[in-house]
Computed example of a mutant assay.
Amino acid sequence: MPRYLNVALGQLGPIQRADSRTQVVARLCELMRQAHAVGAQLIVFPELALTTFFPRWYIEDEAEINSFFEQSMPNAATQPLFDLSKALGVGFYLGYAELAQEATGAVRYNTSILVDRSGQIVAKYRKVHLPGHKEHEPWRRFQHLEKRYFTAGDGWEVTQAFGGVVGMAICNDRRWAETYRVMGLQGVEMVLIGYNTPVHNAPAPEHDDLSLFHNQLSMQAGAYQNGTWVVGVAKAGVEEGVDSIGGSCIIAPSGEVVARCLTKGDEMAIARCDLDFCAIYKRTTFNFDLHRQPQAYGLITQRKGETLGADGTVWAAPSGV
């Protein structure tokens, strides 16, 4: 019996610095209601969906920086979204800035969570591939200080949820082959990705006209080469004077785009995703156990401190790898 999952794109338009979390959560709830009305079981929201994209500013005041971060989830501002999720039976992916209390003290992460249809958090992911720069670079039209404000996460794990195997990534992660491959080796069937991507690339402005193309290209390649669905969702439009791409879409394991948003504002779109369709690729062209030979080219996949081969067994890396 096919395993169908109705997945909605919950694309957001701009969030200005003056917009409150209450206002933003109300927008998220409206998108969730729209998704429920057309039968969605899961809605995917963008990266850093609760605030403006604050890494575009160089900020030295710690209290000001921390004002963009969540110290708990859910909290008073986001509880209505969790309550609505439970009431409607619609799960969600949400990206936000997390201020975590760890043994070494407070640590800042660019985080996403997966919430099931009962409104319970079932997985958390922290962004691994942090783009941009760490020090003040006032020559830029706007800055991209993720390396200053966030600590990188420690890898990708998948979760049994929504009747399948689900993984998460965030924004720049989508450009790197290992993001998909590490989850692919764990049998992932759907990768959820939120992003905030400016049209302008200060270090390489010749890329500007290709921003939307590269966004879709990387997700289509990841989907096809790992036999998985990929759901990519933007926060788009002109936010605090910075134009960001849209292009939210749902991509099948074949690499084909099956649903997309058409605007750069708040928009919902939906697709019926057959999770069993992944097997057509996982058992044939991309049957890793049968065809993949990592020892031949020194590819190492790290998971929980182990060095893994294609079949999950520990193997020694070639000298110099």
Rank of each mutant, 00 (worst) to 15 (best):
P2D: 04
R3M: 06
N6T: 12
P14W: 04
P14N: 03
R17C: 11
A18T: 15
V24E: 14
R27W: 14
R27K: 15
E30V: 10
M32C: 10
M32Q: 15
Q34I: 08
Q34L: 14
Q34H: 13
A35M: 07
H36T: 08
Q41Y: 05
Q41W: 05
V44I: 14
P46S: 11
E47S: 12
L48I: 13
A49W: 13
A49Y: 08
T52P: 00
T52F: 11
F54Q: 12
R56M: 15
S67H: 14
S67N: 13
E70C: 12
S72I: 03
N75Y: 08
L81D: 06
L84K: 05
L84R: 06
L88Q: 11
G89Y: 07
Y93V: 01
Y96N: 05
L99T: 01
A100N: 02
T104C: 05
N110V: 03
S112P: 07
L114R: 10
R117P: 00
Q120I: 09
L130I: 03
R140E: 10
L145Y: 10
K147Q: 10
K147S: 00
R148I: 01
R148F: 05
E157K: 03
E157G: 04
A161I: 01
A161V: 02
G163V: 00
V166C: 08
C171A: 05
Q186I: 13
G187V: 11
G187C: 13
E189A: 03
M190R: 15
Y195D: 08
N196H: 15
N196V: 04
V199G: 11
P205M: 09
D209R: 13
L212T: 01
M219C: 15
G222A: 02
A223H: 00
A234M: 11
K235W: 01
E239R: 06
G247T: 01
G247Y: 01
P253G: 02
V257M: 04
V257A: 02
V258P: 01
L262R: 06
A269N: 05
I270D: 02
D274S: 01
I280L: 07
D289T: 01
Q295G: 05
A296N: 07
L299I: 08
I300C: 08
Q302G: 08
K304D: 11
L308W: 08
A310W: 08
A316V: 07
A316P: 00
S319E: 12
